[in-house]
């Protein structure tokens, strides 16, 4: 039975690995930007380090249970009083300390790296994100346009997402571009992401926000800079303006079936959203004024 179980596990594990290697549905394993790549490299590094300890331990477990099982005529050594060995104990306090030391160092280093723009020589673009019940509002302060439930970004350009919520706490996640960050009422949070090549990427809310939470999906469309500019210009010309009344309607709990586009939005809308939900009590130096344009 035990052997069957091990066989089953091996098969399952191998299937998962194989499947993940070539199956594009494992989006986290197919990063398209420097942030997601850095994170995936660290994930592989951590798996490797941990495997160094986990695989021998599991092998040892199987060996010991097999070798020392209680059956008549088992010739393996039996030492019922053996209860201490200093050298062995030093070894297994030492090994995990060493592994955690290496992993800890690499983790700390990467954590600091990710607070910076992924590329330094390209001028970044800022997009302000507001989590509402149950849709995402994106404002483009440089282009002065807004979208709901989808976001366009120029490929190859670092994007500074500034996150807030006018609703319960959500988390903004685009797995192929990088990890997530909370969107919280009364706070403006910065998340650096970048797409290296044009494409459409899956994004979702990752922190439960109530009844319509499942519908908080959005697409991130990355285009070459010229096409992105074209797109923004198109919206500027064709789409309606987002009025204050329009925003208040969006803010009401509900689910949208379609995406929306707006040629403009009320001046200082993002700033006001952050302020009205508690921003005025927060430490302004932490939130940095350039996030709240």
């Amino acid at each position: 039975m035990k052997r069957n179980l091990i066989k089953l596990l091996t098969v399952l594990g191998a299937t998962a690995l194989l499947a993940s290697g070539c199956d594009s549905r494992y989006i986290m394993l197919h990063p398209v930007g420097p942030v997601a790549k850095t994170e995936l490299d660290l994930i592989y590094f951590s798996i490797l380090l941990i495997a160094v300890i986990v695989i021998p331990v599991l092998a040892l477990l199987i060996f010991i249970v097999y070798r020392y099982r209680n059956k008549p005529g088992n010739k393996a050594k039996y030492m019922p009083e053996w209860e201490d060995n200093k050298v062995l104990e030093y070894v297994w306090w030492g090994i995990p300390i060493l592994i955690i030391g290496i992993l800890g160092y690499q983790t700390a280093k990467t954590t600091f790296v990710l607070t910076e723009p992924p590329v330094k020589d390209v001028k970044p673009i800022t997009i302000q994100v507001t989590s509402l019940n149950w849709k995402w509002l994106f404002q483009y302060p440089d282009q002065k346009v807004a979208t709901v439930n989808y976001v366009e970004i120029p490929a190859g350009v670092p994007v500074q997402f500034v996150l807030t919520a006018d609703a319960p706490i959500n988390s903004f996640w685009v797995p192929q571009l990088g990890g997530q960050e909370y969107a919280m009422p009364g706070m403006a949070m910065r998340l650096w992401l970048q797409a290296d090549k044009p494409g459409t990427y899956y994004g979702s809310g990752a922190n439960f926000t109530g009844e319509g939470f499942q519908h908080m999906k959005f697409e991130v469309v990355a285009k070459p800079q010229a096409e992105f500019d074209e797109w923004a210009k198109g919206i500027k010309q064709k789409a309606p303006a987002l009025t204050m009344q329009g925003y208040e309607d969006l803010q009401k709990p509900g689910v949208l079936d379609n995406v929306q586009e707006f040629s403009s939005y009320p001046e200082g809308l993002f700033h006001d959203i952050v302020m009205k939900d508690g921003g005025q009590y927060m430490d302004m130096s932490k939130m940095e004024h350039d996030l709240l344009k």
Binding site: I50, V54, L58, T110, T111, W173, G179
Partner: peptide, 26 residues
């Protein structure tokens, strides 16, 4: 022991903060 060794391994993976940005709430 079998189960918890793996749980510990994935726990350490989750503890890697930048990796957790991806695992979080998934």
């Amino acid at each position: 022991i079998l189960c918890f060794v793996v749980a510990g391994a994935t726990g350490v993976m989750l503890a890697v903060a930048p990796a957790d940005y991806q695992y979080h709430n998934s």
